[in-house]
Deep mutational scan, measured.
Amino acid sequence: ASVAVIAAGTQGNIFATSALRSMRFLQILRMVRMDRRGGTWKLLGSVVYAHSKELITAWYIGFLVLIFASFLVYLAEKDANSDFSSYADSLWWGTITLTTIGYGDKTPHTWLGRVLAAGFALLGISFFALPAGILGSGFALKVQEQHRQKHFEKRRMPAANLIQAAWRLYSTDMSRAYLTATWYYYDSILPSFRELALLFEHVQRARNGGLRPLEVRRAPVPDGAPSRYPPVATCHRPGSTSFCPGESSRMGIKDRIRMGSSQRRTGPSKQHLAPPTMPTSPSSEQVGEATSPTKVQKSWSFNDRTRFRASLRLKPRTSAEDAPSEEVAEEKSYQCELTVDDIMPAVKTVIRSIRILKFLVAKRKFKETLRPYDVKDVIEQYSAGHLDMLGRIKSLQTRVDQIVGRGPGDRKAREKGDKGPSDAEVVDEISMMGRVVKVEKQVQSIEHKLDLLLGFYSRCLRSGTSASLGAVQVPLFDPDITSDYHSPVDHEDISVSAQTLSISRSVSTNMD
């Protein structure tokens, strides 16, 4: 405001104040949320940038038409019409005319000016109207692209899951042992070998009828009888010197917790746990005396209480009078009846079946994303299906024409109403129809010849004498029936064969 007042002088105070007050009108834009329509302006900018070359070309040609039209109309009207006294007036008329506004304040009066105005109007309006069409088509394409992008975003994750499931299904095939990355992934998420051994031990116990592997080994086996189970490696608790092959000598807290839970599941009659010990102070733990958990001091820290809870689970003690015997301790020893080589084939089979199920689920979810969402998608899918159906029908028609023997030239002739090819031409065609016709002709010829021969033979049998045999009239074959199959017997006289037959029969009768 200060700059405006200084620039306008003393009389500019009122002007500056009114100008600043008129800017209050811009507050109405906040009512229509114009300040939060950044996406709309961004869309407009992207459309203009995408079609910038077309817009520049249309505007450039339109500007050239405007300059030439205004100049030529000015030359034609400057002497006869006072409205075109300057080139600026003519340029104003050209702008209003070519933009199809047409105020009518300035019009050419001479015939030359009117002809020039009409010609440049028809030429220039087309170029001035091009930017509107370019922007409209650009907006339509952009909206369609955003629509497809939205659908693509919805299909991206199911497609990625389907590709991942397909690759993992491919890589978990037993015949592709060189693909090891997927197996490394499952090695990292699978439970430890100790848990798998416990699982298979329970399965084997159920197969043995509820007997433990130790009891199965204690059962008497006759001499020479084959053992029911192959000899396997035996594993004891981590306190002993022997372990399962492939295990580490260090046992983690999870393994100890699972070991304690498995020992508690063996039965309360074979294992008696004394009350857990509780320390009397955060600094020292008295293991010899058993106290109640309700006497825990409230001033303990979080670490002390955590250690106390761990001691409740991981440090059970047995009383002296209830101490288990050596046999019970041997039964409680952890027996590992299986090795990694025995378990891994079954584990890989389970993983393979899981990968198949996940692949089928991913495939079903991806197919669900291909379903249409709204009416536009339904129409688009219907149009695509219609085009596909037309293509299939056209391909089927082409194959039928190839089989029947109607080529493209014959199809055009039928469409024009011309006469089709004759039967002889159809026979000569190298097509399925021509071959079928040729075979039918040959079969008819053979059938006719057989009928003639059978009739001749029956007449010979009825006559009974050589004289009557020679008097029999043998009809000749019709050459038209034989089609294109020409037998060497067709052109010979059958009477010669009949005479030869009669001579042979007379000779045979004389010999008798």
Rank of each mutant, 00 (worst) to 15 (best):
residue 163 I to V: 06
residue 163 I to N: 08
residue 163 I to T: 06
residue 163 I to F: 08
residue 163 I to S: 10
residue 164 Q to P: 08
residue 165 A to P: 03
residue 166 A to P: 13
residue 166 A to D: 02
residue 167 W to R: 05
residue 167 W to L: 11
residue 167 W to G: 12
residue 167 W to C: 12
residue 167 W to S: 12
residue 168 R to P: 07
residue 168 R to G: 06
residue 168 R to S: 06
residue 168 R to C: 11
residue 168 R to L: 12
residue 169 L to P: 04
residue 170 Y to D: 01
residue 171 S to Y: 05
residue 171 S to A: 14
residue 171 S to P: 07
residue 171 S to F: 09
residue 172 T to N: 12
residue 172 T to I: 13
residue 173 D to V: 03
residue 173 D to G: 12
residue 173 D to Y: 00
residue 173 D to A: 15
residue 179 L to P: 14
residue 179 L to Q: 01
residue 181 A to V: 11
residue 182 T to I: 11
residue 184 Y to H: 02
residue 185 Y to S: 13
residue 186 Y to F: 10
residue 192 S to C: 15
residue 198 L to R: 10
residue 202 H to R: 10
residue 207 R to L: 13
residue 216 V to M: 11
residue 239 G to R: 03
residue 242 S to Y: 13
residue 257 I to F: 15
residue 259 M to R: 10
residue 263 Q to L: 15
residue 265 R to L: 02
residue 268 P to T: 13
residue 278 M to K: 14
residue 280 T to A: 06
residue 285 E to D: 08
residue 286 Q to R: 10
residue 287 V to A: 14
residue 294 T to P: 12
residue 296 V to G: 15
residue 297 Q to L: 15
residue 300 W to S: 12
residue 301 S to T: 11
residue 302 F to C: 06
residue 308 F to I: 08
residue 313 R to S: 12
residue 316 P to H: 12
residue 316 P to A: 08
residue 319 S to F: 15
residue 321 E to D: 14
residue 321 E to V: 15
residue 322 D to G: 12
residue 326 E to Q: 02
residue 330 E to V: 11
residue 332 K to E: 15
residue 333 S to C: 06
residue 345 P to H: 14
residue 350 V to D: 15
residue 352 R to H: 14
residue 352 R to P: 02
residue 354 I to L: 01
residue 354 I to V: 13
residue 357 L to P: 13
residue 357 L to R: 14
residue 358 K to T: 15
residue 359 F to S: 12
residue 360 L to P: 11
residue 360 L to Q: 00
residue 362 A to P: 14
residue 364 R to W: 12
residue 364 R to M: 13
residue 366 F to S: 15
residue 366 F to C: 15
residue 366 F to Y: 03
residue 367 K to M: 11
residue 367 K to Q: 15
residue 367 K to N: 03
residue 367 K to E: 05
residue 368 E to G: 01
residue 368 E to A: 12
residue 368 E to D: 04
residue 369 T to R: 12
residue 369 T to P: 14
residue 369 T to S: 11
residue 369 T to I: 09
residue 370 L to R: 10
residue 370 L to Q: 08
residue 370 L to V: 08
residue 370 L to P: 09
residue 371 R to P: 15
residue 372 P to S: 14
residue 372 P to T: 05
residue 372 P to Q: 05
residue 372 P to L: 02
residue 372 P to R: 09
residue 372 P to A: 13
residue 373 Y to D: 11
residue 373 Y to C: 11
residue 373 Y to S: 15
residue 374 D to N: 04
residue 374 D to H: 08
residue 374 D to V: 02
residue 374 D to A: 12
residue 374 D to E: 05
residue 374 D to G: 11
residue 374 D to Y: 01
residue 376 K to T: 11
residue 376 K to E: 12
residue 377 D to A: 10
residue 377 D to H: 12
residue 377 D to V: 11
residue 377 D to N: 15
residue 377 D to Y: 00
residue 379 I to M: 13
residue 380 E to D: 14
residue 381 Q to L: 07
residue 381 Q to H: 14
residue 381 Q to E: 11
residue 383 S to T: 15
residue 386 H to D: 15
residue 388 D to V: 14
residue 388 D to E: 11
residue 388 D to A: 13
residue 389 M to I: 09
residue 389 M to L: 12
residue 389 M to V: 15
residue 389 M to R: 15
residue 390 L to V: 08
residue 390 L to M: 14
residue 390 L to P: 15
residue 391 G to D: 09
residue 392 R to W: 05
residue 392 R to G: 13
residue 392 R to Q: 11
residue 392 R to P: 03
residue 392 R to L: 12
residue 393 I to N: 05
residue 393 I to S: 09
residue 393 I to L: 08
residue 393 I to M: 00
residue 393 I to T: 14
residue 393 I to F: 03
residue 394 K to Q: 03
residue 394 K to M: 00
residue 394 K to R: 12
residue 394 K to E: 00
residue 394 K to N: 13
residue 394 K to T: 01
residue 395 S to G: 10
residue 396 L to R: 13
residue 396 L to Q: 12
residue 396 L to P: 15
residue 397 Q to R: 12
residue 397 Q to E: 13
residue 397 Q to P: 12
residue 397 Q to K: 15
residue 399 R to P: 12
residue 399 R to G: 13
residue 400 V to E: 13
residue 402 Q to P: 05
residue 403 I to S: 14
residue 403 I to N: 06
residue 405 G to D: 06
residue 405 G to V: 14
residue 405 G to A: 11
residue 405 G to C: 10
residue 405 G to S: 08
residue 406 R to L: 07
residue 406 R to W: 12
residue 407 G to E: 13
residue 409 G to E: 13
residue 411 R to W: 08
residue 411 R to S: 05
residue 412 K to N: 10
residue 412 K to M: 13
residue 412 K to T: 12
residue 412 K to E: 03
residue 414 R to G: 09
residue 416 K to E: 11
residue 416 K to N: 13
residue 418 D to N: 15
residue 420 G to R: 13
residue 431 S to R: 13
residue 432 M to T: 13
residue 446 I to F: 02
residue 446 I to T: 01
residue 449 K to T: 12
residue 449 K to E: 05
residue 449 K to R: 10
residue 449 K to N: 12
residue 450 L to R: 13
residue 450 L to P: 14
residue 450 L to M: 06
residue 453 L to P: 13
residue 454 L to W: 12
residue 462 R to S: 12
residue 463 S to P: 04
residue 468 S to G: 00
residue 473 Q to P: 10
residue 473 Q to R: 07
residue 473 Q to L: 15
residue 475 P to L: 13
residue 484 D to V: 00
residue 486 H to N: 10
residue 490 D to E: 05
residue 503 I to F: 14
residue 503 I to L: 08
residue 505 R to L: 11
residue 507 V to L: 14
residue 507 V to G: 11
